[in-house]
Amino acid sequence: MTQTITLTINGKKRSDTVEPRMLLIHYLREVAGLTGPHIACETSLCGACTVHVDGKAIKSCSMFAVQADGRNVLTIEGLAADGKLDPMQEAFWNEHALQCGFCTPGMIMTAKQIVERNPKPTEEEIRHGLEGNLCRCTGYQHIVNAVKAAAAKA
């Protein structure tokens, strides 16, 4: 009961044989060795596992790896090109938008999508956009600041 999948992750193509039940998050973390996306719940509510698949932010704990066959996956590890941080990463750093950092990779991937779709989001739009990402440390305010700051620079 295994299947071979071929997909592009952070610009690199790879092929693996997986059980259909393997979740994309487990595939990324344990097969592809990309441990940036995290697992923090099992009910698709926390968003710590958020990655982009074909340009859309999705929860990789709620997608089987086989569903990503042939698709383009972007994880937190794919953001900093040649050591230069993505503006959203830079903004999270400047604004102290993280404490323990566990939710951060998912938070940044969602934040990027918010700004991609709405280059000048209001505070309310940012908060609405972040509904699917839980953070227990920051109280979200500095995250909101970071999204605003990244949007202002874009």
Binding site: K56, A57, I58, K59, M63, T110, I114, L130, E131, G132
Partner: peptide, 9 residues
């Protein structure tokens, strides 16, 4: 419905 990621999928 749901949240941004859920609406995407």
């Amino acid at each position: 419905i749901g949240d941004l990621q859920v609406r995407n999928m």
